[in-house]
């Protein structure tokens, strides 16, 4: 009898397990949230009026633009270099793969902050940089300080360091693709490069994208280290302002709010990117159905 009634109704009412502990955590969280709001509003040292004034000021916004520029250029270098180093590291040529390993070892093994300082003080190591024949005559040369400006030093420091991390991410992605995919491509007569480009890398993307998104977010924040090179990105712009008006906390808050806003935007972007690269998990693609209909219709008409 009970079995038949259960079968007739698709959902049977069940007495849910009670979670009294949850109410305690809700209460604790509510108290903490109230305390936070209270201190934010009542502690005048936060200086929200100052934050409101500077958050859209020209100096801060120009720093923001420079931070975005640094992030984009350094990540572009990092991704390109990382892809190249990953393929080099997987190469069967021992000289090529050893070079990649040594590069990764060095750039991951030293702090990016120290690397930035090195690029900043490059002129202390080589006062002049030249282009010429190895051990032969120099054809072109210039002052290091005129070539490696704070901006170039920042780009080199961040980009070359990022390349080492991206290399490991890309390599992990490539290795995550089943060996059978490569064999099937080889059996069809595809070259090594074509196999990599058409078969392996597109499938490695879904493994590469999530950590790369994290790297972009991390890079956005790491650009603040560049303030040590006196390059006016977001943090250094804020520092320049508070060195004059001594409103330190409000200006640090201003910079933090911008960092937080930008990382939030990036997180949302990453979500959509990941969804795009996992599309083969979901049913037939619309684009292909449309393409197929176009071909099949004339055939049926005949």
């Amino acid at each position: 009898m009970t079995a038949t009634t259960a079968a007739l109704r698709s959902v049977e009412p069940v007495v849910k397990l009670r979670h009294p502990g949850r109410w305690i955590t809700y209460a604790v969280a509510a108290v903490l949230a109230a305390m936070l709001v209270n201190t934010l509003l009542t502690n005048n040292n936060f200086g929200w009026d100052v934050v409101g004034h500077y958050i859209v000021s020209g100096q801060i916004l120009s720093g923001l633009v420079k931070t975005v520029e640094l992030t984009v250029i350094a990540m572009a270098i990092g991704v390109a270099l990382g892809g190249l180093l990953a393929v080099m590291r997987l190469s069967s040529n021992p000289a090529v793969s050893s070079f990649a390993s040594a590069y990764i070892w060095f750039f991951r093994g030293t702090p990016v902050f120290v690397q930035l300082l090195f690029w900043g003080y490059a002129s202390a190591l080589y006062p002049r940089l030249g282009l010429g024949v190895p051990f032969g005559p120099t054809l072109l040369s210039a002052e290091t300080n005129s070539l490696i400006t704070p901006f170039i030093a920042a780009i080199l420091g961040l980009g070359l360091n990022e390349g080492a991390y991206m290399a490991e991410i890309v390599r992990g992605g490539i290795l995550s693709v089943d060996r059978g995919q490569t064999e099937a491509a080889q059996a069809l007569g595809m070259s090594h490069l074509r196999t990599l480009r058409r078969i392996v890398v597109p499938q490695a993307m879904r493994v590469i994208i999530p950590p790369t998104g994290n790297q972009v977010i991390s890079m956005l924040k790491t650009t603040s280290l560049v303030s040590v090179l006196a390059f006016p990105e977001l943090l250094y712009s804020a520092q320049l302002v508070y060195s004059q008006n001594f409103k330190t906390i409000p200006l640090l808050l201003t910079a933090s709010l911008w960092y937080l806003l930008m990382t939030s935007v990036l997180t949302i972007g990453q979500h959509y990117l990941e969804r795009h690269f996992s599309r083969s998990d979901r049913g037939p693609s619309r684009r292909n159905i449309a393409a197929q209909n176009v071909i099949q219709q004339p055939a049926e008409a005949r």
């Binding site: 059978g180 995919q181 064999e183 491509a185 059996a187 069809l188 007569g189 597109p202």
Partner: peptide, 19 residues
Amino acid sequence: ERQRADLGMVFQRFNLFGH
């Protein structure tokens, strides 16, 4: 590669390109 292109191969695990 040219030699392989003239021979078809079918694998135990299919190995269709997943993307």
